[in-house]
Design a protein around this nucleic acid. Structure first.
Length: 361
DNA sequence: AACACGGGGCA
DNA sequence: TGCCCAGTGTT
């Protein structure tokens, strides 16, 4: 079982995928790619990565940009705190590290948005430090190689896996080794139907030997997520705001923090959706509306709950908006909405509005 | 230690 | 369509 590292590296050097962040080893590029790859698959990341670097070519350019611009490029990628932390960390690097990313995992981990995984990845890949990484791919490969039966959602199991990963990092080429381990997990040692017949580590794999590879890793089952109905208003203004629509910016902490939305909220027991909408708009923005026709219904899944978002056309009938439950608000045309960052669900409302020849109200 | 945080892939 | 996936920060 000893040294699978040599077999792994041989495989990697012949099968290594050509990805944009692998063309050079610029620390800023490695960092950006690793942050984007958190919780997000390679195929999704590539386009975002290229657009992001085209817009913010250097760490200094990122640090100098307004957060709204960063969120706009991040729009649709999810987990928007990653973008906020990346932006804040870039500003810290410029202010406190003379614009150069620190070179050790320990120093990197002090920056916002950089935990043990990202610190290990950047330190080993960009700076050649001899440190491990442990992400979902590595966990899967290691629990199969060593046929680990412990529940990986347990803290103690994670700690032991980190220790195991650390003990396995080869004395040189840690960056290549770490990338190879994750690449193997992504392409061969996949969650379902692993491609063991193509795996360079088959001879080293204890779970394969027992035919248990598909039973690893062991994970506690998650409880079902609840479902909510949410009402959202497409609120048309009057007078000087005629043909403009009211949008609101969400508070920076919490779900979709800092993103823009069609204001509204969660339906409560015994309420019709138009009643929900009227109540929420009064609570959050202090405005009165006449609720009109439904525009579209959008289903969306978050980690801990699912929502059905019901969009209604509304007419603003009274009260100047105030920032009560929102970070900001704006009256904008449909075309101007392209300049604001929205979540996926609200983007679908915009798409529905764009498909219609004209507003009904 | 437990929970919050988006969106995509796959059967 | 329902289920699975998963780093970091906060509390």
């Amino acid at each position: 079982m000893d040294t699978f590292a040599a077999d792994l590296l041989d495989w990697f050097y012949t099968h290594r995928a050509d990805l944009p962040w692998r063309r050079e080893r610029d620390p800023y590029h490695v960092w950006l790619s690793e942050v984007m790859l958190q919780q997000t698959q390679v195929g999704t990341v590539v386009g975002y990565y290229e657009r992001f670097l085209a817009r913010f070519p250097t760490l200094a350019a990122l640090a100098a940009a307004p957060l709204g611009d960063v969120l706009k490029v991040w729009e649709g990628l999810g987990y928007y705190s990653r973008a906020r932390n990346l932006h804040r960390a870039a500003q810290i690097v410029v202010a406190e590290y003379d614009g150069e990313l620190p070179r050790t995992a320990a120093e990197l981990q002090r920056l916002p948005g950089i935990g043990r995984y990202t610190a290990g990845a950047v330190a080993s890949i960009a700076f050649g430090q001899n440190v491990p990484v442990l992400d979902g791919n590595v966990i899967r490969v290691l629990t199969r190689l060593y046929n680990i039966e412990e529940d990986i959602s347990q803290q103690g199991t994670r700690r032991r896996l980190w220790a195991l990963a650390e003990s396995l990092v080869p004395a040189d080429r840690a960056g290549d080794y770490n990338e190879a381990l994750m690449e193997l997990g992504r392409l061969i040692c996949r969650p379902r139907r692993p491609q063991c017949d193509r795996c360079p580590l088959r001879q080293h794999c204890q779970a394969y030997r027992e035919g248990l590879q598909e039973q690893r890793p062991v994970r506690r089952r998650r409880p079902r997520t609840p479902h909510y109905d949410v009402a959202a208003g497409v609120i048309y203004g009057t007078g000087s705001n005629a043909s403009r629509i009211l949008i609101a910016q969400r508070p920076v902490d919490g779900v979709l923090g800092g993103l823009w939305e069609f204001p509204g909220g969660k339906q409560e027991a015994g309420e019709t959706l138009p009643e929900t909408l009227a109540r929420e708009l009064e609570e959050e923005l202090g405005i009165m509306v006449e609720v009109g026709e439904p525009v579209v219904r959008v289903k969306h899944a978050f980690t801990h709950f699912r929502i059905t978002l019901h969009a209604y056309e509304c007419r603003h009938t009274g009260g100047r908006p105030v920032k009560r439950g929102v970070a900001d608000f704006a009256w904008v045309t449909l075309a101007e909405m392209a300049n604001y960052a929205f979540g996926k669900a609200d983007r679908q409302i915009i798409a529905a509005l764009l498909e219609r020849p004209r507003q009904l109200l």
